[in-house]
């Protein structure tokens, strides 16, 4: 079957989709967006987290056909998404992230260590600055979840952060640096206002 839906602000069409396929599979294998990771395919790890109509969900547990006509934001579109949020909408009418740009998206820029030279969302920059990325497999899901947490709750307590990220597993960091990153992003967000 064919599925039409919006990905990172742009309309997309996925063809030859099997009816039992997950949104995660469509994103990775049909649209070439491997940012959302596949670690468990059973909702346990959160590495496949995306926003579906604004709500964080495990894309491995959403059937492809269920997203027809709906709006998905993946980690590849997070920087644009965050930018639009601070700018209060899309002024130019040409916002969002094209499939091409999303497929080639890298947190590299001129300096791959610091992310300098690329447009990163504040939460992405905070993850780099706090050293919250080790192997990086959990990172995309954590970024999407943490970004939504801070959107909903700009001044989270540590308990709020733990709860907000309780659906995302990390095998490397021990979570302390991830906590630091979210606190850092929250503090910077607070200064900016």
């Amino acid at each position: 079957m064919r599925v039409n839906f919006t990905v990172n602000g742009r309309p997309q069409e996925a063809d030859d989709v099997w009816e039992g396929e997950s949104l995660l599979y469509v994103l990775r294998e049909r649209l070439g967006l491997p940012g959302s990771k596949n670690a468990c395919e059973q909702g346990e790890c959160g590495s496949c987290t995306v926003r579906l109509d604004g709500v964080p969900v495990c894309s491995c547990l959403v059937a492809a056909g269920q997203v027809e006509g709906r709006d998905v934001v993946t980690v590849e579109g997070l920087a644009d998404y965050a930018k639009q949020r601070t700018e209060g909408g899309c002024a130019t009418g040409a916002c969002g992230t094209s499939l091409d740009a999303a497929q080639q998206w890298q947190a590299k820029g001129t300096d791959s260590q610091t992310g300098e030279g690329t447009e990163l969302s504040p939460i992405q920059q905070a993850f780099i600055d706090a050293g919250a990325v080790q192997c990086g497999f959990c990172t995309p899901g954590l970024l999407v979840a943490a970004d939504e947490l801070l959107e909903r709750n700009p001044n989270p307590t540590d308990a709020d952060i733990r709860e907000g990220l309780s659906g995302n597993l990390c095998r490397c960091t021990g979570y302390e640096k991830i906590m630091d990153a979210v606190r850092l992003a929250a503090a910077r967000q607070g200064e900016a206002v």
Partner: peptide, 23 residues
């Protein structure tokens, strides 16, 4: 299939191959 949090796990792991999914 509503939230899919039970159904999709079964499909992803090939425990279930329904003829029809009713969204």
């Amino acid at each position: 299939i509503a939230g899919g949090t039970d159904v999709m796990v079964e499909i992803n792991f090939d425990h279930r191959r329904p003829e029809y999914l009713l969204d």
